[in-house]
Design a protein around this nucleic acid. Structure first.
Lengths: 346, 346
DNA sequence: TTGAAAGCGCTAACAC
DNA sequence: GTGTTAGCGCTTTCAA
């Protein structure tokens, strides 16, 4: 139980005033060399840990944090994010923090840009965003930087020196996790990587997952498996996929790189006398149903709720406790089967 | 942005003093009916949320929390717990909280009792403990209750009305998770549940895992699998297990209910021309090695670090923020393969 | 029964 | 440059 020193203690020990100690601690200048030396002498002797609580008592500034994320009404994947944000908000409600959500349409880059403009009008101190569109996100973030707005990202990994913080998964590695699962499930045959419904080029996340997936099998150096890639889009999704399945009769497994595995499951479940293993992403309702029916074998959980929670919590702790925001926080890649799914959904 | 009311605001609105408002808020009595009505009238109008930070500024009491847990030097499984405890301690270092660890020998009930006696001498405000031994833990907890010491448990589920709080896994369900994994991995054959190195009767956790495991297969209503149980103890572990393996040549999978799966893996890895699927528990070094060698297929992660972290954090938040401690916090049952292991270890 | 006042640790404004 | 002071919101003590 070492003693907890306060500024008052230090002032008395150094025989200066609290004000001077404060100036030294915060390097506000206007301190004579003599006083500086006296205070530093004391600081070297003891371990001073400022009471962060007391510091914030005074602070009447309300920090504004805005979140720029896809609207859950277009894609239920994003719904848990709003819960995570609410949770963080609640946890820090004792402090002066205002958090506001701004939703954009995940299929529209212009919606992203317009929503961001609305967001900027509220002059936030920080923005937490999902950089869904590479090019547009880059512009937006550079703009934040020039305006002195702190920005953090989550969910979509994004290579750029403009970004100071990211919370999410290592997508390459998650591709490897999926590959390992299918490797264990299957003895041989063809395995398809299916990308659904997004522009492949602007969607780095799908590319990374594919890379990781292929990387695992290339390291295996086995010729038991053949890896195929298939990109599908609405409309004609069903016909295209059926065609694809017919042309590869030895297809044993499918890796769906988006949260749309249920769309594939819907079709493969109708195939008689054959079970195609499926590994997909995300614990949305439709996927869980097929998981429970044993049509989907595994889902990889990206934990959007915790991603958003941590994104917000990091920012708040930065503002009130002066804690540095971690450059990159990689969350575990959760493997989900029919039996442990409910534990992740709560 | 609704206004944040302070006690001062309320006092002015009710035309009484801050002191009176405080007495009403804390039901300290000594308030006239007239004053009470005036204050309540205001409180009904506005939403008052006390500033929990300011409340604790004054508080000079140092809360003592003791942790009673198995010594990691006997079983490395417990090591991450100390990290989780340290993390919680660090996170709340701004408050007056003292956390102290007390380690007992996980193989000795008397060590448990003696360590607890040493712990009690420090007169803690709360104890977080691992109720490893059913009978002894019960006595100890009832004693805490009579002494007015708050107690919480983690890791080992424990049915008793004496317990107010538990953080850990649903062990029955984790048995089902393991069963589902082996079901997916295997087509047919015998599957063995192996209990290693603990007194089965006093170890409810192993019983629960077995129950869940068997429950899954009984629901399957398939006669593809035969489920066996095998209890092994040092010494002669190796001979006994080898005998067992020889007597069941169609053995296709093994479920190890403790963190000792590596001991089984050591033996099965020497069997030529046959791969027995293994599912075990816990990310300790030896297990991870066999996981990476593909001898162990899956490990179930019990997240001891987070369990301990949450146990401590709940207690601290109770003390400083008056937050109720959740009766039961069930953590996800994490499925780990060679590819996502490192994300959980960090 | 009530109000006034002091003080928790820190910050910022203000004299000197 | 430096020390003093007021005040953040709440609790507690003390005097009335």
């Amino acid at each position: 139980m070492e003693k907890i020193y306060t500024i008052k203690d230090i002032a008395e020990l150094a025989k200066v005033s609290k004000g001077t100690v404060d100036r030294v601690l915060h390097k506000r200048g206007k301190v004579s060399q003599v006083a500086l030396d006296k205070v530093n002498a004391v600081l070297n002797e003891i371990e001073y840990r400022p009471n962060l609580i007391a510091r914030n008592l005074k602070n009447t500034k309300i920090y504004r944090i805005c979140v720029l994320l896809p609207d859950p009404k277009y894609d239920p994947y994003w719904h848990p994010c709003t819960e995570g944000i609410a949770e963080a908000k609640n946890e820090f409600k004792a402090f002066n923090i205002a958090v506001e959500n701004f939703f954009f349409n995940p299929k529209s880059t212009s919606s992203f840009i317009e929503t961001n403009e609305a967001l900027l009008k509220t002059s936030p101190d920080a923005v937490l965003l999902v950089p869904l569109f590479y090019k547009e996100a880059l512009t937006v973030i550079e703009n934040y930087n020039s305006l002195g707005i702190i920005s953090s990202t989550f969910n979509n990994q994004f290579q750029s020196s403009a970004i100071k913080s990211f919370v999410g998964q290592d997508l390459f590695q998650s591709g490897r996790v999926a590959a390992r699962l299918l490797d264990l499930l299957l003895k041989n045959g063809s395995i398809a990587i299916i990308h659904i419904d997004e522009k492949y080029k602007n969607a780095i996340h799908m590319q990374e997952k594919e890379k990781g997936f292929r990387n695992y099998f290339s390291e295996l150096e086995s010729d038991e498996f053949e890896i195929l890639t298939c990109k599908l889009k609405h409309p004609k999704f069903e016909i295209k996929l059926t065609d694809f399945l017919n042309s590869y009769p030895d297809l044993a497994g499918i890796f769906v790189t988006t949260s749309k595995a249920y769309q594939v499951a819907e079709i493969t479940s109708k195939i008689e006398g054959k079970k195609i293993a499926i590994v997909g992403y995300d614990l949305i309702k439709n996927n869980i149903e097929y998981l429970n029916n044993n049509v989907i074998d595994f889902l990889i959980h990206q934990n959007p709720k915790r991603q958003a929670y941590l994104g917000i919590a990091n920012l708040i702790e930065h503002f009130i406790f002066d804690i540095e925001i971690p450059k990159e926080q990689l969350l575990p890649i959760d493997i989900v089967n029919s039996e442990n799914a409910k534990n992740y959904i709560v």
